[in-house]
């Protein structure tokens, strides 16, 4: 489904990605772990063509999106939903219009159907009716994040990219979001890529976990395999959570 082959990306002097290889099979959930500033967001933006690599391939459903022009890219992006780390809501639109936006752009639903759809996604995120008419600037950080989640999944995309979906959410909502990711995978066969700092979430939702360090994936496998990893960066990272063996 998503195949990344030898991906390199440099910003000026800053070598962020230096040969990423990662494969996410259809219908699975891949969690990307890594320290702050290790390039997780940059990697995710390459998957949907927001950033252009210096070299390497990003293969989505058998098509390399790196050399694609805008039209082809637009077609491929219709398969995606993306949750941004800082939500990236349109601040000129209300919460309702934000979530309705992808529907208005890509479907011909009647206003009633549209409302029902938006409402169901907001319900899923535990956002009440009175939130609908608010503007993003009037929401708390966690609420904004949840609106961003609702907007990303409103078209029921085949692939969802989550950039730290649960950072800044309370534990109950975090469980909610984890459940939603799992439910989407099991019920609808959605392929998910999740960037996370929360190791318990990562082990909860991930079929496979990839660990990004110094521009490469240093460990990749099932949660159990990752637990056994001997790579020093991974060990240090996991020890903070599981304690030293």
């Amino acid at each position: 489904m998503i195949d990344i082959v030898d991906l390199h990306k440099t910003f000026g002097e800053n070598k962020v990605l230096t040969g990423i290889n990662l494969s996410v099979p259809a219908g699975s959930t891949c969690v990307i772990l890594g320290g702050s500033g290790s390039g997780k967001t940059v990697l995710m933006k390459h998957m949907i063509g927001l950033l252009h690599p210096d070299s390497g391939k990003v293969i989505i459903d058998g098509e390399d999106i790196v050399p694609m022009g805008v039209d082809d890219l637009q077609r491929v992006r219709n398969k995606f939903g993306m949750v941004f780390q800082a939500a990236a809501l349109f601040d000129s639109m209300t919460v309702f219009e934000n979530v309705a936006f992808p529907l208005r752009e890509h479907t011909r639903l009647s206003e009633d159907e549209l409302y029902a759809k938006v409402r169901s996604k907001l319900d899923l995120m535990g956002l009440k009716r009175e939130v609908e008419s608010k503007f993003p600037a009037d929401l708390s950080g966690g609420m904004r994040k949840r609106v961003g989640l609702a907007r990303a999944v409103v078209l029921d995309p085949k692939i969802v990219l989550y950039d730290e979906p649960t950072t800044g959410l309370d534990p109950i909502t975090t469980d909610y979001v984890d459940e939603m990711i799992l439910a989407a995978q099991q019920g609808l066969g959605v392929t998910s890529v999740v960037i996370s700092h929360d190791i318990s979430s990562a082990f909860n939702v991930g079929d496979q976990i990839a660990f990004l360090s110094k521009g490469v994936i240093v460990a990749h496998g099932t949660p159990e395999e990752l637990r056994e990893s001997q790579h020093p960066a991974v060990k240090v990272f996991l020890e903070t959570w599981f304690g030293k063996n």
């Binding site: 805008v70 993306m82 936006f101």
Partner: peptide
Amino acid sequence: VTEQVDALETMAVN
């Protein structure tokens, strides 16, 4: 700078 332009792009809107 708040990535709203990126968000538009991910929603396949030019």
